[in-house]
């Protein structure tokens, strides 16, 4: 009997793929350590006036990029650790057993998992990868990935601290995040070959049987190496792009756009995409725009930013194909814009 195209799709074993785990090659590790030590030595030995000679734009680029990395790094590592814990210690069928059978209800419950795993959106990528490896469908993983940065206690509390109940910003963020994440999950759950939404490398990782090799600590170390080698380059590239765009696109331009009830929504969505700030602190960041931008624009920033930004796209690219990311981004962008424009209309 052929499998139903709408049957819950698990990561099916594929043809043997390339090995992604394993021992870390000593030469690259040595080169990496030497490089870091070299940079530290340069920084330590360089005269202070050297940095003064740098162009302002370059200094801004370095500062902004580094700030995104520094802000995200703890959450990335936390997400990786949680991902490993999920993969190694969460019983294989626990999630599938505990979650409701109805796909709609499953996604609704999955979108609330962020309450238990309050990780910044950049940490959710490795965690979502771990959840897929532990039995979630791709659509459910997308729902989790998009909802968790918003529907978690830290984000909700910081948003409440920043805005209280003013203009329905908090409620719009929570409800908007929930609805958009579930909408995306529903759309992609209809895909007949959901594994094709994943990158070949991640498909191979899905096919790889982690349980087969070695003790748990050894496997945990290997998985940590795998995940960090997949995530950190993406994080650095995404952070660099975020820093570069912030230097190139003037803040004054964004503020000028913010005076318009329609364009303000898109301006803050663009800002959210560019600044790539963590959802745990983005409410305080955008609070400074509160007097300039309309509430709908603030809501669009707070909903769109945690789901899609340059850094997230780079991180998600480790897992999803470019085509999938384009489709996902289009849905989230249009939904966030509609939400923001609706709030502006009513607020």
């Amino acid at each position: 009997m052929p499998p139903s195209p709408l049957a819950p799709l698990r990561p099916a074993p594929l043809a043997p793929g390339r090995r992604t785990g394993g021992r870390i090659a000593p030469l690259p590790l040595a080169l990496g350590v030497a490089g870091i030590l070299g940079l530290l030595a340069v920084r330590w030995l360089a005269p202070p006036e050297l940095s003064a000679g740098l162009d302002d734009g370059v200094q801004d680029f370095i500062t902004l990029s580094a700030s995104v990395v520094i802000e995200s790094l703890p959450f990335v590592f936390l997400g990786i650790l949680l991902s490993i814990a999920v993969q190694l210690w969460l019983p294989a069928d626990l999630l599938t057993r505990r979650l409701p059978r109805s796909p709609l209800l499953r996604r609704a419950v999955v979108s609330l998992l962020g309450v238990l795993l309050p990780v910044c959106e950049c940490g959710n990528v490795p965690l979502a990868r771990g959840l897929v490896l532990r039995g979630l469908t791709v659509g459910e993983a997308m729902t989790f990935l998009l909802a968790a940065p918003i529907l978690n206690p830290v984000t909700i509390i910081t948003t409440y601290q920043a805005f209280g109940w003013d203009d329905g910003i908090l409620v719009s963020r929570i409800l908007g995040g929930f609805v958009i994440a579930n909408l995306v999950g529903w759309v992609f759950s209809r895909h007949p070959r959901p594994m094709s939404l994943l990158t070949p490398a991640f498909q191979a990782a899905c096919a790889h049987d982690h349980a087969a090799a070695g003790s748990k600590p050894r496997r945990a170390a290997r998985m940590f190496a795998d995940e960090t080698s997949a995530m950190l380059p993406a994080l650095f590239v995404g952070s660099a792009v975020a820093g570069l765009i912030q230097v190139v696109v003037s803040r004054e331009l964004l503020v000028a756009l913010g005076q318009n009830p329609v364009l303000s929504v898109f301006a803050l969505m663009l800002l959210a995409f560019v600044v790539a700030i963590c959802s745990n602190v983005d409410a305080f960041f955008v609070l400074s725009f509160g007097s300039t931008f309309m509430p709908g624009a603030i809501v669009a920033f707070l909903v769109f930013g945690p789901m899609i930004d340059v850094k997230m796209l780079a991180l998600m690219r480790t897992t999803f194909t470019a085509r999938t990311l384009v489709q996902l981004t289009a849905i989230v962008a249009l939904a966030a814009a509609a939400l923001g424009l609706g709030v502006n209309l009513l607020a």
Binding site: S4, P5, R190, H191, P192, L334
Partner: peptide
């Protein structure tokens, strides 16, 4: 069945994007 599912997915995706754009 896969082709049919793919067409249905594309139609669903296009309809979702269209409705969101209209909204």
């Amino acid at each position: 069945a896969t082709d049919s599912g793919a067409r249905r997915f594309r139609r669903g995706l296009a309809a979702t994007l269209g409705l969101l754009a209209l909204a």
